[in-house]
Design a protein around this nucleic acid. Structure first.
Lengths: 247, 247
DNA sequence: CGTGGCGTTTGATCCACGTCAACGTGAATT
DNA sequence: AATTCACGTTGACGTGGATCAAACGCCACG
C-alpha cells in the first residue's frame, strides 16, 4: 500500500502520476529503466484513475487506445457470450497490466471489473509504442510482459484441459499465494476478492464444486477457510495434490 | 504452395529467404510494410529451415533466441508435465508465428512439432526488436500479432471452460475452416493433420469422445468424415450447435 | 500379398461433476 | 436488534464424458 502521507509532500503535477515515485517499479513496466528513462515514462503515463468495487475499467466492444497498470486493488476480466454464459479469463493484481487483448483489433475483447476499490494508471498505447522505439529496455520489457501473458494463458489451458476439480483449485490457491508473496504479503494467509462463482467460472467449475473442494481441503488439513479468508497450512500437500496422477 | 519454378529464377542469395518475394506477405509479419521496409526485413530473416513430419522445431527448456514464421506446413505446440499428462496448446499453419511464449523467460516453454513436412523462417528476436524500433509499422504489427495470440488463448479458455464436447469440436472445425479459407483453400473440405488424440488433448477431451462427436456430426448430416478427411456440409448447423444453450 | 501396428470406431460401464434444492451465514441497512 | 439479501455450504440425484475393452481399417514393410 502506498503511504498517502509521502504523496502529499509532492507538488500536484508530480502527484498526478509518477512511475519514478511508484513502489511498483519492480513489478510493473518501469522494471530495469534508469532515472532518465523513468522520467520519460512518467510523462506518458497520463492519468491516474480510481474505481470503486464493481465498476468497469473498460467493457468488451469499446475502442482500445490505452493499456492500464494496476496501482492498487484487484480486478477480474471476463467475456460474456450472447447465450448468457460467461467466462472469467483472469484475475489481476497490483503491478499487472490490463488491456493487452485490445491491441490486436483496437477494440477491447473482454470486460475489466474492479473487485475492490482500486487505482490504475492509464498508458496511452501509441505513446507507449513511441517510447518503446526510443528506450530499448522498455521495449524489451513490454514484450516480456505480453509473452508472460501468453504463458499464463497456456497455464490456464492446461488447468482447464487436464486437471480435475481439486487439482484446479489447488493450482489456483498456489498461484494466488505466489503472487501475494511477490508483493510482500503473506504467502499463507489472504482474503479472496472474488466469489465462489467467479472462481468457478475461471476454473471451469460450478460454484458448488468449488465450495466442496474448499471444504475437502479444510477437512484434509491443507487449509482453513472461512468465507473469503483463506490460510494455507500445507503448501507441499497442495502441490502434491495439484500434480497427482490418477494411478 | 510456392511455385518452385519461380524460385529457381532468382540468384541463390535471394532464395535463402525473401519476405519481399513470399506469397505470405499478407498473412505474416511483413503485412503493411513498404518496399524499402520489406528489404530490411529480408535482411533479418536469416535462415529458412525444412522439417520432416514429426520433427521438433524447438523443445521446452531450450534457450529462446528467435521466433519462427511458418512458410509452409503445419505444427502443433504442446506442454508435457512430469506425471505423463500433456496438453496441446495450439495448432499453427502457414503464415503464423511460433515461439512467442519464449520471450518472457528467454526459454521455450512448450514443444513445437511439425505435423507434416514443413518449412519455416527463422527471425532472430533481438534483430526483430531492433528493426521494430526503426519501422513503426513493423512494431505495431508485431504487437498486434502478440495480442492476437492472447485473444486466441482466451477463446480456447472459453472453449475449455464452458463448452461441452460437441460444442468444442464444432468450434474447432469452424476455426480450421476459417483459417484454411484465409489461405485460399476450400472452407468446406480439408485434411486434418492431427490425430484424434491430439484434437482431444487440445479440446480437453479423450480421443474416444472426439471420435464419437465426429460420428454424431456425420449422422446428423453436418459433415462427412473419413479418417482425416473432413467435408463440412452445414456450416450454419455447426455454428448453431457451437453456441447452443442447454435449455 | 500377407502381416503387424497404429489410429480409429463403437459398445458397455463407471464416476466426477453438474443440477436442483434446502438451509446457513455474515455484512449492510434501518 | 431486526430485516434483508447476496453469498456460501451441504445433501441427493442425474448425466456427460472418462474408462475399459474389443474389433476394424489403413498403411508400411518384408
Amino acid at each position: 500500500m502506498p503511504p498517502r502521507s509521502t504523496i502529499a509532500k509532492f507538488p500536484l503535477e508530480l502527484v498526478k502520476t509518477a512511475c519514478s515515485n511508484c513502489n511498483l517499479r519492480e513489478l510493473c513496466l518501469p522494471l530495469g529503466l534508469n532515472d532518465h528513462e523513468l522520467a520519460k515514462l512518467d510523462e506518458l503515463v497520463s492519468a491516474r484513475k480510481r474505481l470503486k468495487r464493481g465498476e468497469h475499467l473498460y467493457r468488451s466492444g469499446q475502442p482500445f487506445d490505452a493499456i492500464y497498470a494496476i496501482r492498487s486493488g484487484f480486478f477480474k476480466t471476463d467475456v460474456l457470450v450472447e447465450d448468457g454464459r460467461d467466462q472469467v479469463t483472469g484475475f489481476q493484481m497490483t503491478g499487472e497490466l490490463l488491456g493487452l487483448d485490445g491491441i490486436s483489433s483496437e477494440v477491447h475483447t473482454c470486460n475489466a471489473v474492479a473487485l475492490e476499490d482500486s487505482e490504475i494508471c492509464t498508458i496511452p498505447f501509441t505513446h507507449l509504442e513511441g517510447l518503446s522505439r526510443e528506450i530499448h529496455t522498455l521495449q524489451h520489457h513490454f514484450h516480456k510482459v505480453m509473452s508472460r501473458e501468453i504463458v499464463r494463458d497456456h497455464g490456464v489451458m492446461m488447468l482447464l484441459g487436464m486437471m480435475r476439480a481439486e487439482e484446479r483449485l489447488a493450482a489456483f490457491l498456489l498461484n494466488l499465494s505466489q503472487r501475494f508473496t511477490a508483493r510482500g504479503y503473506s504467502p499463507a494467509e489472504f482474503n479472496l476478492r472474488m466469489t465462489r462463482e467467479e472462481i468457478g467460472s475461471y476454473l471451469g467449475l460450478k460454484l458448488e464444486t468449488v465450495s466442496r473442494a474448499f471444504s475437502r481441503f479444510h477437512e484434509d488439513g491443507l487449509i482453513t477457510v472461512q468465507q473469503k479468508h483463506v490460510r494455507i497450512l500445507d503448501t507441499q500437500g497442495l502441490k502434491k495434490l495439484m500434480t497427482h496422477e490418477r494411478e
